[in-house]
Design a protein around this nucleic acid. Sequence first.
DNA 1: ACGAATTAACTGACCAGTCAGTCATTATTA
DNA 2: TAATAATGACTGACTGGTCAGTTAATTCGT
Lengths: 219, 219
Amino acid sequence: MSELTAQKACTETLTRREQQKENRRLALIEAALAVFSRVGYAAAKMDDVATEAGVSKGTVYLYFDSKETLFKEMVRAKMSPMLSGMTDAIGQSSMSATDRLKTHMKFFYKKVLNSDRRQIMRLIMAEGPMFPDLAEFYHANILNRGQAMIGTIIQQGVESGEFREMEGHGLAQNIAAGALVAGIWKLVFDRFQPIDLDAYFDTHVDLILNGLRASSADN
Amino acid sequence: MSELTAQKACTETLTRREQQKENRRLALIEAALAVFSRVGYAAAKMDDVATEAGVSKGTVYLYFDSKETLFKEMVRAKMSPMLSGMTDAIGQSSMSATDRLKTHMKFFYKKVLNSDRRQIMRLIMAEGPMFPDLAEFYHANILNRGQAMIGTIIQQGVESGEFREMEGHGLAQNIAAGALVAGIWKLVFDRFQPIDLDAYFDTHVDLILNGLRASSADN
DNA sequence: ACGAATTAACTGACCAGTCAGTCATTATTA
DNA sequence: TAATAATGACTGACTGGTCAGTTAATTCGT
């Protein structure tokens, strides 16, 4: 009921029991994501998470202290792969700032908006105020890095003459905003007015790059 | 505990009782907004709404059938003033498209991002999937109108030569996105990294107008 | 005094979290 | 290798508390 390929990193060192234990844990996290996404944090029942993972409720508590812990660990677990992925993706290729920005935006659309993770994005917005430490984790580990990355690219672009200079309070947020809204739209309003993520992406890139581009006069 | 200026529209025709009844209703809606904003839909207790409004729980049920009804009517009540406000604000002044867009964006920042309503915006995103009819109402009455308005302005700008032509799937969403993200940021991440809405607004306008502006070549 | 508005005690459903007991797997012994 | 012991993963009935919604009694306006 979910493709969880247990990390058989060190098959030697893990007994069969330990492997199964790790698999259970992953299965529970998948189940938790499914249930929390479907009905939100408060309405999610531990019983449903258990059923979705194919175990009984008591078992869930052998792996996670409480509903809150389960939720937080689920978010962290689903997000941590992004962390390495992001810094890796920077690379030192000799791309122009323009292409580099485009590449990173594509990466985000693919890895977040087109996957489970957009649900997490929504959950953070929905439950963030109730779980400040989760919001802080998300801010420190995802948003901050994203902003830094965008900042670096902009700077490169300004130096190379591709982009104009902008003072830019909230520039990074403004650049990323289109993508966040696309993710939310897909989850909340898609049924009333579907959006085509690929076409939307093109518009987004077009608008932003043109907005940043050094040209005639400024405002 | 909340500045609710009852609409004393027709003081003559309303007995004191009727006035008080209307005031109660408004007070309950204010209280509901406060409580729902503070803890989210599911965790909000009817008892707390009642206390916040200075009445007992039973009274709430004299005005609203159920928690769900209260929530929906609260959203509708807080949003409906916007509806007239938006169409009014169009005006047929002889503004350039550029100035018109700027004016509308300012309006949105002022009326939504700097008021209670940003909480509603967040609640819609957070609870939208659980209340499809609310999401639909919001889409039909707010988002659709906003999109139409932006579309009209863009068209004017293209015709006047101010803006370049863009095919634009999701153009309106992309233009508005910065504002939505600002609202959410303020509610979820402001404590970790505050944003200055005025400066952010300037960046947003600058980026968007430059992105739309007709200039040398396009992408 | 009458009826409308309000109250607060009450009910019943619901659910997070617990725990005594079961069962399958692994280790030990002969 | 076969019988036995020990382990620890798992179960599901149960508890304690919470809260939406109800209703009988009370207060308030006219």
